[in-house]
């Protein structure tokens, strides 16, 4: 059972790591706009080669 003395800090450390990542992401602005990136994802990168007929 004494393994709990290692397990508990490790678990809390992992949780802390996740929280740190989340805080960083928020402060970095990743949660500012949740609508536009979804639209950006379907943008094509090779627009110069777009064939008009392939568009819906």
């Amino acid at each position: 059972m004494s393994v709990i003395y290692i397990m508990l800090p490790v678990a809390l450390g992992l949780a802390g790591l996740a929280v740190w990542g989340f805080v960083r992401a928020v402060r970095g602005g990743q949660y500012d706009d949740l609508d536009t990136p979804a639209m950006r994802a379907i943008q094509r990168d090779d627009a110069d080669a777009v064939d008009p007929n392939s568009q819906p």
Partner: peptide, 17 residues
């Protein structure tokens, strides 16, 4: 907005643990 979201996230993580 960001500060508020950070608080929600931190509170959630702590509550879960």
């Amino acid at each position: 907005d960001r500060a508020m979201l950070v608080r929600v996230g931190v509170a959630g993580a702590i509550a879960g643990n």
